[in-house]
Design a protein around this nucleic acid. Structure first.
Length: 433
RNA sequence: GCGGUUGUGGUGAAGCGGUUAACACUCUGGAUUGUGGCUCCAGCACUCGCGGGUUCGAUCCCCGUCAAUCGCCCCA
């Protein structure tokens, strides 16, 4: 028999760790609610063209996509990121027409990229992202960063820092790109092999090279600043002022270039400064995109958004010893002693119908074994269904904390269990202290 | 896509070219036949990721493969 395991780069989220995901999910929902964001769910695969846009040279688009076809004609792709699908949906459903802008949307779900896995990098991973589309303002940029930062902070993470930069408008960006190519034209052959490739793909990245950063040609490379229009500079200044006003600490990082080619103006990242985050320190990244809505056939509207890598968030939470797990404890454990038939199940069912999380003993086991189950489930109250009591239509109820035990009529059980979970009035005979 | 490290039960891990693969935790049963959490005793890996090779013989050596992990690249 062939043994299977999960495909490379994927993970099973097992029950004992799913609590973390539920905690984080709730936090996201709550945070988005107060910011006025609504959830949107777009399909996990789309026409390849949605993701593979002209001029996009990122690795993600050129070599990491899971692309397939079932009829030899259509080309479909498992989504590698969330923004494209959301913008496509925004345009398709003309969300710019019947509501106040900006549209504020968020999504949570799996993304797929064919990469070599390592810590913090999987082939199927999860992102939480937001898109704010339709209103171009430095305030919105700052607000968006604030939302992401709030989530990170609300999780209790402290070893993070916010990096921001501006790429200017499309013209600024294009001119700077040309200037860089011109500058490195003669020099490119002396650069490292990665930089040679970067020269072709995205010269901005050469500035950030770990190998070549000492080279004169890099030190004397043109500065982005000189290519920004006055308007772009002003825009960036206002973003920074807003962040200051919101008390969000940040660093301007001139070499910060986001991977996706559609960004303009503000780009930002939140990186972990914790050593255990390893090579994948970026927790979330995003920025403003001016041309995308139009690209998909919508009006000329600008958007801003980010995506948070949830696995990375959880790695950092682990490293910082933030406990996000839910610790579930049973309310009641129903034990069985002797020939009691299906009574324990019936009793359990009644307790559950009254809202108590109840576990019960199914097969005959020693009392000791059953008490071990009580401990394992961390049950607070034990109901003992024994054949002796049953003759008198009674069961025993025991409060674990106080060790108090009493017998009651089986029909009044709920009443007694209620008492163990509530404050007792004076003179109550339930036995609880 | 490139380079390095690792791979022994549910978990953490010893181990060695040679008849029964330590130890600890967990788990199961018993001492204690209707009241646990302590203690004590017993049990729990036809097998050392998978495939092939070397050898009289391999968990241990070699090759391949799969996976994890670290760094590069890239990115969330």
């Amino acid at each position: 028999m062939k043994k299977y395991q999960n495909a490379r780069g994927t993970v099973d989220l097992l029950p004992n760790e799913i609590g973390k995901w539920q905690t984080i999910r709730k936090l996201i929902d709550d945070m988005c609610f107060v910011y006025g964001y609504k959830e949107i769910q777009t399909p996990m695969f789309e026409d390849t063209g949605v993701f593979k846009r002209e001029h996009d040279t990122s690795d993600m688009v050129t070599k990491e996509m899971y692309t397939f076809s079932k009829n030899g004609v259509d080309s479909l792709t498992l989504r590698p990121e969330g923004t494209a699908g959301v913008v496509r949906s925004f345009v398709q459903h003309k969300m710019y027409g019947n509501q106040e802008l900006p549209a504020k949307l968020y999504y949570v779900g799996p993304m797929f990229r064919y990469e070599r896995p390592q810590k913090g990098r999987q082939r199927q991973f999860h992102q939480f992202g937001v898109e704010n589309i339709g209103l171009k303002s430095p305030l919105v940029d700052a607000e968006t960063i604030a939302l992401g930062y709030s989530v990170v902070k609300a999780l209790g993470l402290s070893h993070v820092k916010v990096l921001i930069n501006t790429l200017g408008d499309e013209t600024s960006r294009k001119n700077y790109d040309i200037a860089l190519r011109e500058h490195f034209k003669e020099e490119q052959h002396n650069l490292c092999s990665d930089c040679k490739r970067r020269y072709e793909v995205n010269p901005l990245r050469i500035l950030d090279c770990k190998i070549d950063h000492e080279k004169e040609s890099i030190k004397h490379a043109p500065k982005m600043d000189d290519y920004l229009t006055e308007e772009s500079k002003q825009y960036f200044n206002e973003v920074k002022q807003a962040l200051d006003a919101l008390d969000i600490p940040y660093e301007v990082e001139p070499s910060l270039v986001r991977g996706l080619d559609y960004y303009t103006h503000t780009v930002f990242e939140v990186v972990s400064t914790h050593p255990e985050s390893g090579a994948q320190a970026t927790i979330f990244g995003g920025g403003r995109y001016d041309g995308m809505v139009e690209y998909f056939g919508g009006p000329s509207l600008s958007g801003v958004g980010f995506a948070i890598g949830m696995e990375r968030l959880l790695i950092l939470a682990e490293a910082e010893q933030v406990d996000l797990n839910k610790h579930v404890e049973a309310d009641v454990y129903v034990m069985s002693l002797g020939e009691v038939g299906n009574v324990p199940l019936v009793v359990t069912s009644q307790l559950r119908a009254n809202g108590y999380y109840t576990e019960y003993n199914i097969e005959p086991r020693s009392l000791k074994a059953q008490f071990k189950s009580v401990d394992r489930f961390k049950a607070k109250v034990v109901v003992i269904v024994g054949q002796d009591e049953l003759k008198e239509h009674k069961v025993s109820v025991k409060d674990i904390a106080s060790q108090k035990q009493l017998q009651c009529d089986i029909d009044e059980l709920i009443h007694y269990v209620d008492h163990f979970f509530e404050e007792c009035h004076e003179g109550c005979q339930c036995g609880k202290e």
